[in-house]
């Protein structure tokens, strides 16, 4: 099967005079894969994900998505398909509904059908948010609930790949396991490709992930 994402000899330094954060990273990601990238804080795990969706320009090597270099794909088009979720959920000042639907107003998403309230309520149940009304103010939710709303907002855009950057780092144990269950469900039942960066020992229950370790500037498979 051809790769969905390929990293070829990828290297990154913050500037030309500083030592590389990592170097000569090679990785093939196929459709439906579940990848876990581990490593201590500061090894460049988040940077690696941010380079794939062009939130940071890379220095050396190539990143290909469906055989095209990421630089040749218009940024909004790339990011709609390879969706990066930040460590801390960003909620705007408004209702849960407004937070879920604002991406549909963007030029690149205009052709997408806006889901009706019934569909949103059904999804809230799947995301363990059945007791939250759509008119609830998003900033009054707990961080764990906000993280699940942010996840739901990302899924509504139907990306092909989701890059999770420490999705549970700010959550308590119960909220974290809810988020993990949702992510596993997305991969197992909806064949969504998942790349997750974490420094925890998390291991999915019913999926065998490909586990990588970013250490000493190199990425290796465990």
């Amino acid at each position: 099967m051809s790769s969905l994402i390929s990293l070829e000899h990828l290297g990154f330094s913050y500037d030309s005079s500083s030592a590389p954060l990592f170097d000569d990273v090679n990785l093939e990601i196929s459709r439906g894969d579940f990848l876990l990238i581990r490593g201590a804080s500061g090894t460049g795990k988040s940077t690696l994900l941010r380079l794939v969706c062009r939130l940071q320009p890379h220095c050396r090597g190539r990143i290909l998505f469906k055989g095209r270099t990421v630089e040749s794909i218009p940024p909004a088009e790339l990011r709609r398909q390879v969706l990066y979720t930040t460590q801390l959920p960003a909620m705007m000042d408004g209702t849960v509904r407004a937070n879920l639907l604002f991406p549909f107003s963007f030029e690149s998403n205009r052709e997408k059908a806006v889901p009706p309230d019934d569909a949103l309520r059904g999804m809230l149940e799947e995301f363990y948010l059945h007791d939250i009304p759509l008119d609830h103010h998003a900033l009054n939710l707990s961080v764990g609930q906000q993280q699940r709303v942010a996840l739901m907002r990302a899924i509504l855009q139907k990306p092909e790949v989701i890059l999770f950057d420490e999705p549970t780092s700010a959550l308590d144990g119960e909220s974290a396991s809810m988020v993990f269950r949702i992510i596993e469900h997305l991969n197992r039942d909806q064949q969504m490709t998942v790349v997750m960066v974490t420094h925890s020992d998390y291991r999915p229950e019913r999926i065998t992930p490909a586990i990588y370790l970013l250490e000493h500037r190199k990425l290796r498979r465990l």
């Binding site: 969706l83 991406p103 963007f106 998403n109």
Partner: peptide, 16 residues
């Protein structure tokens, strides 16, 4: 920055 990047990731261009 977090909100701006979240919007970018959800398909916004830099203006949006």
């Amino acid at each position: 920055k977090n909100m701006v990047e979240t919007r970018l990731c959800l398909g916004a261009n830099y203006r949006e």
